[in-house]
Simulated scan of single mutants.
Amino acid sequence: MLQALRSGLVGTARCILTAAVLAGIVVPATADDSVYTNLDFDSCEILAEYEGGGFDARCPGYQGLPVFVSEGDARIDVDFGIDSGSFESFTAFNGPGETIEWRIDDAGVAAAILRFFIDVDGRSAQALVVSQVGHKGAPGCVVGVVDASEDQANGIARGIATMARYFDCSTDTAEVVAPAGSMVAQFNAANRLD
């Protein structure tokens, strides 16, 4: 199963790179690395509070890139770089972990990986959510979701992050990597087709 996933990721990467070459886009060689920051809610600026307990906040990220956190009905959406304006989260109650893994390549910050804790009716799960980092005029989005209980989950998430720079949030589809438990599979992304 893992081999099939790896083959799928390689195939997807080839399609993306082929499209980039045909479009005349130079795709730099990458030397992927990780940098870690904390998601510390005590350091966040509250931008808005909503009746019923929801909020929007801007938190410090990596090298001046802000992290936008929105909470509504005990569900969390996190955007990196700029606020995407879309609420992407799990159907079940959830919350983010404290550590953001920023994936860096030769062109700069390409993606962010954040662990989510999902809990409902005494059942729990964890997922790694891979997001493209947004920039002015180009909001990011969730690229992929990996069930954290799977073998090599961190490596799979990093593989997805490697392709995040080439993901088109307006046309490409966010993927929940199979196999995934039911609570992880119920991820609602603005660009996810079911």
Rank of each mutant, 00 (worst) to 15 (best):
G137V: 06
G81A: 11
A148G: 00
F68A: 08
S86H: 10
F87V: 12
S149P: 00
K136L: 10
A138Q: 08
R103E: 14
A107Q: 14
T99C: 07
V120G: 01
A138W: 01
Q132K: 15
D73P: 00
P60H: 09
V143G: 14
G81Q: 09
S170E: 12
I113L: 06
I104M: 15
I118S: 14
V133T: 07
F68Y: 15
R115V: 08
S70Y: 01
C59E: 05
V78T: 12
V146S: 02
G140C: 03
D172M: 11
A92L: 01
T173F: 08
I156V: 15
I76R: 01
A107D: 11
T173S: 13
T171L: 12
I100G: 05
D83I: 09
R115F: 07
F87L: 08
T91I: 07
G108E: 09
D151S: 10
V129S: 00
C141F: 04
H135S: 13
G108K: 03
A164V: 00
E101G: 04
G155M: 14
D83V: 07
P60N: 02
A138V: 06
C141E: 05
E175L: 15
A111I: 02
G85S: 11
F93L: 09
S86V: 08
I160T: 03
P66W: 08
P139F: 08
Q132E: 05
H135Y: 05
V67S: 11
D77P: 00
F68V: 09
D147L: 03
V146A: 01
F80W: 11
S86R: 09
S131F: 10
G159Q: 13
W102V: 10
V109A: 12
I76A: 01
G144S: 12
F68S: 07
D147F: 05
Y62V: 02
G85V: 14
I156S: 00
I118F: 08
C169V: 15
M163S: 15
V120E: 13
D73A: 14
A125Y: 04
G72D: 09
G144Q: 04
D151C: 01
K136N: 02
Y166Q: 10
G140T: 05
V142Q: 04
G140F: 05
S149H: 04
S89C: 15
E71Y: 04
C59R: 03
